[in-house]
Each structure stands twice: as C-alpha cells, then as structure tokens.
C-alpha cells in the first residue's frame, strides 16, 4: 500500500491528496457559509456596543449637567423665597403697625366725637330746661 517509499515507509499519495482536498473544501465552504456571516455579526455587535457605551457616556454627562443646572435653580429659588418672605414680613409688620395706629386714631376720634356730642346734648337739655 503505497506509491512512494520514503525511508522504508510506504506513503499513499492518494490519501494525502484526498485529505488536502477535503480539508480545503471544508475551509472554503465554512468560510463562505458560516464565518463570513458570523464574523460580520461579531463586528456589527462590537460596533453597536461601542456606540451604546458612547451614548451612555454622553447621556451621563448630559444628566450631570442638567442636575447641576437644576441644583443652581433650586438654590436661587430658595434665596428668592427667603428674601420674599423677609420682605413680606416687613410689609406685614408695617401694615399691622399702620392699622394699629389707624385704629387708635379712629378710636380717639370716636371718643372725642362722643364726648363732644355728650356735652352738646347736655347743653341742649339745659336749654330746653331753661326755656
């Protein structure tokens, strides 16, 4: 069994040829049917993952920026609110004060008027008495 003797060993060339042919065919068929598709898929997925990671990084940055902005706005709003409250308290105090004064004033006027009215009616009575 052998076409060729090498160092006393029979070598069957046909077997080697068949082996070479079938392996080559196998490699080319698999390359065409399987690996082209599979490697394409792997590459696309790799790109997609890189893209996704980049997007995540971007949105993270954006979210951070937004958070900072909203923090700033909140801070400003707090300050504004505090000032507003202070101002309002002041105004209210003033109003109360004014109202109190006015009330006092009105009371005083009323008292004066009433005493005046009393004296005038008294004199009227007296006049009637005297007539």
């Amino acid at each position: 069994m052998g076409d060729l003797m090498l160092f006393g060993l029979p070598i069957s060339l046909g077997t080697m040829l068949y082996q070479a042919v079938i392996f080559t065919i196998l490699v080319f068929i698999l390359k065409k049917l399987v690996f082209k598709k599979l490697i394409g898929i792997l590459d696309t997925r790799k790109e997609a993952i890189v893209e996704q990671l980049r997007l995540t990084e971007d949105s993270k940055l954006k979210a951070k920026k937004n958070l900072e902005k909203s923090d700033e706005i909140l801070h400003q709003a707090k300050i504004d609110a505090r000032e507003l409250i202070k101002y309002n308290e002041k105004v209210a105090k003033q109003l109360v004060q004014e109202a109190k004064e006015e009330a006092k004033h009105i009371l005083q006027e009323a008292q004066e008027e009433s005493s005046l009215a009393r004296t005038s009616s008294y004199t009227q009575n007296n006049q009637i008495k005297g007539a």
């Binding site: 069994m1 069957s12 392996f23």
Partner: peptide
C-alpha cells in the same frame, strides 16, 4: 494512486460533522 479507504471514510465523516455543527 493508492487511497486508504478507512481514512477517506473517517476524514469525510469528520468533515461532515464539523460542517453540520458549524452550519
């Protein structure tokens, strides 16, 4: 050319198995 039939059978079967698995 001489062909070793048992090797031809087994290599062909191995190649077919690999092809089927991969495909």
């Amino acid at each position: 050319l001489t062909f070793d039939l048992s090797i031809i059978i087994t290599t062909t079967i191995a190649a077919i198995i690999v092809f089927l698995i991969a495909y």
